[in-house]
Design a binder for these strands. Sequence first.
DNA 1: CGCCCGCTTGATCGTCATCAAGGGCGGTGG
DNA 2: CCACCGCCCTTGATGACGATCAAGCGGGCG
Lengths: 238, 238
Amino acid sequence: MGKQADISRLLINLPLFQQLRDDEISNLAAGTREIGLSKGQILFQKGAPLEGFYVVVYGQMKLAFSSLQGHEKVVSIVDPGHSFGEAVMFMEKPCPVFAQALADTRLVYIAKQGIFAAIDHDSAFARRMLAGLSMRLHSLIQDVEGYSLHTSTQRVIGFLLQLAGASTHHSPVEFELPASKHVIASRLNLTPETLSRALHSLSEAGLIRVNGKRISVLDTTRLSQFGSTPYPPCAKEN
Amino acid sequence: MGKQADISRLLINLPLFQQLRDDEISNLAAGTREIGLSKGQILFQKGAPLEGFYVVVYGQMKLAFSSLQGHEKVVSIVDPGHSFGEAVMFMEKPCPVFAQALADTRLVYIAKQGIFAAIDHDSAFARRMLAGLSMRLHSLIQDVEGYSLHTSTQRVIGFLLQLAGASTHHSPVEFELPASKHVIASRLNLTPETLSRALHSLSEAGLIRVNGKRISVLDTTRLSQFGSTPYPPCAKEN
DNA sequence: CGCCCGCTTGATCGTCATCAAGGGCGGTGG
DNA sequence: CCACCGCCCTTGATGACGATCAAGCGGGCG
């Protein structure tokens, strides 16, 4: 049906599926369905088993877990064109996080059977899948590195540089924060208050300029070195 | 030659290679070499590109990164029968961590060409590879969860329970710490001092007994609840 | 025997979370 | 058009947890 044709067109444009043959694509599309979520809606809870994975068409998803005390920690923000849930699909275990829409969002769900078939037919696809998971692992390790041996401000800097790097790199680089500060703070494992203070101090140091969620990075190189001095940074004293 | 035959025997016993045909195994073995490391020796530095991955035959490896200030953080401890470096092999990126032997260690290095061939011939192998990476991802996410929303003592408890769970589960469970306290502390993202104090307080609470690196967990259930909230979370809906 | 190393114990300090107000902005309704 | 309210963000004050600094201890080994 027409809906499936739409989905096929979507899938074709994903890097992951780039080199699949048409029949493999339609095979895949056969095991898919579209899902609409309104802002705040929960797709699945922590502990759910996944029989497939999801691609974001438009909108924005967050993956997070919450502590017994009700606090929650955002692990990942998933933007259009990206996917989530593959790893859980491949191991037969409950999902370690829950998924919630940060905005009205449209997803495509892809059942694992189609993926497994594609793996069987096309080893290059399997390799792309492996490379994709490896990239996830890599960025997760970078997160761990950040939590372990960077201060809060350094994590904020790293985050800003990452965003800045994504856009064209002539100074000053300007961009918009990809989510509310509350969500970003959680993603960086700090409180909104601390994020606010960090942005403020970077701002005062003349390294960035903040206007709502619009950020201008004035000096990327100096920003990347902030706080890495052998001597304690002579922060402005009270 | 005989050496390769030895390696073949080793590889056959790895879960990952369990169902490969003999010729695939020998194919694999052709792209391998053995590596001996003495305690403290570094296998590769952070930033190195990997053209294959490693399996620990005996001894013990640690994967870690170090901050500019010289502090280091252990990401993973790899025991005999386990492997590391696959993820880096699949993406073409520099390795985010360095690898060092914690004891005199023997490794088998497996070149990626053999792995890629196995993926091409045997899609079940590809799936096992995917499942393996997924498991890594899963445990890394659990680490992140630990760092984010558990206190130091809770992380220690989690670690102990994991070790206890690995052995037979009649109380009291007794086992030996898998590495020096210094290394374990780093693995848990805390200082040796803090680890020492945490073990001490658990000991005083009558939950465990410590004698050097021998640990007895006296009451697993009570241990697992230590420090959790007196009040259940008042989950707020929608 | 004495030294070194891994671990423990104690005292202090810094960073960041927490608690508590206050401001800005958009939406809604008068 | 303005008043009001809610939400998000900011700003300030305080406190707790864990890192750091500094000894002390025991045990293995040259």
